[in-house]
Amino acid sequence: MSRQIFRSKKTKVLSLAERTKKFGNYELIVPDLSFRPIQLCVPKHIARPNYSDIPAIGSVIHIHDQNEIKSIRQSCQLAKHILDFACKTAEEGMSTLELDKIVFEEITKNGAYPSPLDYHGFPNAICTSVNNVICHGIPDNRKLKTGDLLNIDVTVFYSGYHGDTSKTVAIGNVDDKGLHLMETTLNALKAGIDKVGPNKPLNLIGRVIEEIGSKNGYSIDKQFCGHGIGKLFHQAPLIMHYDNPDDTLLEPGMIFTIEPIFNQGSDGFVKWPDAWTAVTVDGARSAQFEHTVLVTDDGVEVLTG
């Protein structure tokens, strides 16, 4: 989710030659202003989240009881299944819109609602972010090509709760720079999860993630963050993926996402006219991985693992 406080730096998009030399071999994704999303119709029997009056996130962190945790586990495990299904389905020559339709059918077949759909007007079941798209990419008619990095972000509303997870996958033959970006971002997510546990300060998560990114020469996105999740799609706490002063002590029963984004170049971003798709200002590639986690009495449980 977006914190809406970070402003993009003014950085020019590099030429093809400059971009290839600095960041690797891939296609720059640009907006298709003629594209219009299709209407997805969720079967009437499927329970829907209430997005008619989305509350402010606030600062109160909900502590989930065992009954709530049981339901959230179910939602998160379904989200894991859907993401695995989507990653196996995505292939060269398929459009992200085609992928969205297939995943939508799988979500609704399992009796769940695709959480992004109609959230603040988002038109699709999943987010598909390719190459220089940082996050919140709207599925469209562009065909996936060999060398693409594709992030698939899945959230489902099931048994009254949301489950959220994402992964960046390689389409066809991806160059070494792209593979290194993916591997490093995944390692940072794992390191952040390792810092979760009772009585540990929240900012340990961002600190270790930023250390890994900086050590490997990547910028850490500061606009988009992890978040609490449960009956609401987004709630407290906010999870920053960089060093920050929030030393709130974690407690058993807290549930939130960790979803670091690393960019090859600048940490600045711009949004497309669709008001959703965020892209790097310099055309560099971006990668993201995400899990929903539960603070337990003695550590952490990866609910979407």
Rank of each mutant, 00 (worst) to 15 (best):
K143R: 09
F262C: 07
V293M: 11
C41G: 14
F289M: 00
A90M: 07
V154A: 05
F6K: 08
E27M: 08
N50S: 13
I229K: 11
C225M: 15
T257F: 08
D148H: 03
D221Y: 03
H241S: 01
Q66F: 06
R3C: 15
G299Q: 12
W276Q: 04
T185R: 06
K101H: 13
F157Q: 05
I152N: 06
L179C: 10
I152K: 00
I212K: 01
P139E: 02
N203T: 00
D84T: 11
R142I: 12
K12H: 14
R48A: 13
K21P: 12
L117M: 02
T248M: 15
V42G: 07
D148F: 08
L303A: 01
F104I: 04
M182N: 05
Y218V: 05
P260I: 06
K143F: 03
Q235A: 11
N141P: 00
Q66H: 08
Y119S: 10
I212M: 02
F23A: 01
G305Y: 09
K12D: 12
K177L: 08
P273I: 01
H45D: 00
L144T: 02
S129F: 03
K80H: 10
L250F: 14
F256T: 04
R36T: 06
C225R: 12
N132D: 00
T280F: 00
I72Q: 10
G197P: 15
D140V: 03
D267F: 14
S266Y: 03
P114C: 11
E251P: 09
N141F: 01
R3L: 04
L83T: 04
R207H: 07
N173M: 11
F157A: 08
D118Q: 14
G137I: 00
A278S: 09
A170K: 12
T277L: 05
V196R: 11
A191H: 08
C127E: 09
H241L: 05
S214I: 06
L117K: 01
I54F: 10
P245D: 12
E106K: 14
K109W: 07
I57S: 13
H241I: 04
I261Q: 03
F224Q: 05
D53I: 14
S219C: 08
D175N: 13
I61R: 12
H234M: 08
L294Q: 06
Y119P: 05
L186T: 05
L97P: 03
E92Q: 14
V154P: 05
S71K: 14
Q4H: 15
F104C: 01
S95L: 01
D153W: 05
N173Y: 13
D274K: 02
E68Y: 09
E210D: 05
D53C: 13
L144G: 02
H227I: 12
P31C: 00
R285P: 02
T108M: 04
Y158K: 15
D298S: 15
T280E: 00
I63F: 10
L238T: 15
L40H: 04
S166Q: 15
S59C: 12
I220M: 09
I152D: 06
